[in-house]
């Protein structure tokens, strides 16, 4: 059913796939593991510091009141002061940034291969993500 003009012939797999399988996959996997592990460590430290600061006060979140740590940049600034809640939020932000970093890394890989179609696709995904992270503040 395949005509000979089709790259890859009978197997639909091999349209540009050899470079793809293995190399990019293993790098993406490493990136995801590193991002999650780093976040987990920061979450643990943040939680421990939070409890060490004050483990006896009551926590009640039955009414919604916007959290004080509400932007990516301020979270990094506040975490430097080594407050428990700021460190926990830093861990949370690192978790959110892990898939964003994955998309960014995929973009670099497509750029390196001159795969323009997927460069465009990835730039759109990355643009929407960055809008969600940074640009959506004026919506509220």
């Amino acid at each position: 059913m395949n005509n000979s003009a089709r790259e890859g012939g009978e197997k639909p797999t091999d349209a540009g796939a050899p470079v793809h399988k293995g190399d990019l996959e293993s790098k993406l996997a490493t990136l995801l593991t590193a991002g999650t592990a780093l976040s987990a460590v920061v979450l643990c430290i943040g939680g421990a510091v939070f409890l060490w600061e004050d483990s006896a006060s009551k926590l009640n979140f039955s009414a919604f009141e916007p959290s004080a740590h509400g932007s990516v940049f301020s979270v990094f600034r506040e975490a430097v002061q080594l407050k428990g809640s700021a460190l926990m939020q830093l861990g949370v932000v690192l978790l959110i940034l892990t898939p964003v970093a994955r998309v960014f890394f995929t973009l670099v890989a497509f750029l390196a291969r001159w795969d323009w179609l997927y460069v465009i696709v990835t730039v759109i995904v990355l643009g929407v993500l960055i809008y969600g992270l940074l640009g959506s503040a004026q919506l509220h």
């Binding site: 009141e65 509400g70 926990m88 992270l133």
Partner: peptide
């Protein structure tokens, strides 16, 4: 990302 900026991500719960 949107929820973070809206203050819906409370570290003492989310972490």
């Amino acid at each position: 990302g949107v929820y973070l900026q809206r203050g819906q991500i409370q570290p003492a719960i989310a972490a």
